[in-house]
Amino acid sequence: MKRRSLLGLSLLPLLQAMPALAATAVEVYKTPSCGCCVNWVKHLSAAGFTVHVNDVDDTGPIRQKLGMPEQFAGCHTATVGRYVIEGHVPAADIRKLLATKSAALGLSVPGMVIGSPGMEMGSRQEPYSVLLVQRSGQSSVFSAYNQPRKDT
């Protein structure tokens, strides 16, 4: 086998993995004074994402440009691969979305929910849902956290 062919074969796994590696880069848009956004970025970094932070005066225009409806607004907006991530979405849900290769617009945790990544306040935890937002603006529950137990 020629040297060029062997080199191509040895690089094949790396070349096949490149789209997945690129998809782990997260572009975050947040206001400069938001501490919970900084904590969310730390959560993503600890989970293995490469994060680039952009401080902006207002995340609304970014969210609008990306097509995320205002009712799903959180305190920061991010992109990963072709998806929009709005608010304090857990890193595990972002990975799950990337693995599903959904046609959805992205994920959202509207508002600032205590107990979500970046919004930790000791043992306090509010129930919340991560919403899968479709390009049409419709949403469904993707994951649920801190839900009250239902005794049967």
Rank of each mutant, 00 (worst) to 15 (best):
G137M: 09
D93H: 03
P69D: 03
Y145W: 06
L66W: 10
A99I: 01
V109K: 03
L105M: 05
Y29A: 00
D151N: 11
R135S: 13
P148L: 08
L66Y: 07
I94K: 01
V51N: 06
T31R: 13
D58V: 05
M68P: 02
H43R: 05
T24R: 15
R3W: 13
A73F: 03
V38T: 15
A73W: 03
D57Q: 10
N146P: 04
L7F: 13
K42T: 07
K101S: 09
H88E: 04
V89W: 14
V84Q: 12
L131H: 10
H52A: 15
Q125H: 15
S102A: 12
F49S: 00
R4Q: 11
K65W: 00
P61N: 08
M119R: 13
S33N: 13
Q134F: 07
P110C: 10
S123L: 09
C37F: 02
I94V: 15
E27V: 11
G87L: 10
A104T: 06
S10C: 14
S102T: 12
P69R: 00
T79G: 02
G118L: 12
T79L: 05
C75I: 05
D57C: 00
A20S: 14
Q138Y: 01
P69W: 03
F142W: 14
T31A: 09
F142S: 00
S108V: 06
P69S: 03
V130K: 07
C36P: 00
G122I: 12
G106A: 06
R82K: 15
H43D: 12
P127Y: 11
G60V: 14
H43P: 10
V51D: 01
A91I: 05
D55F: 00
N39I: 00
Y128L: 05
L15W: 14
T50R: 10
L11S: 10
A92V: 14
F142Q: 08
Q147T: 05
A25D: 01
N39K: 15
P90I: 08
L132S: 05
V84T: 14
G111Y: 02
R135T: 15
Q147V: 07
S10A: 15
T59G: 02
P69K: 07
S140N: 06
D151K: 12
V89P: 10
I62D: 04
F142V: 08
A78P: 01
G35K: 11
G8K: 14
R95S: 11
Q134Y: 04
Y145K: 02
G115Q: 10
F142C: 02
R4C: 00
K2Q: 12
S140K: 13
K65T: 02
V109F: 06
V89H: 06
H52S: 14
G118H: 11
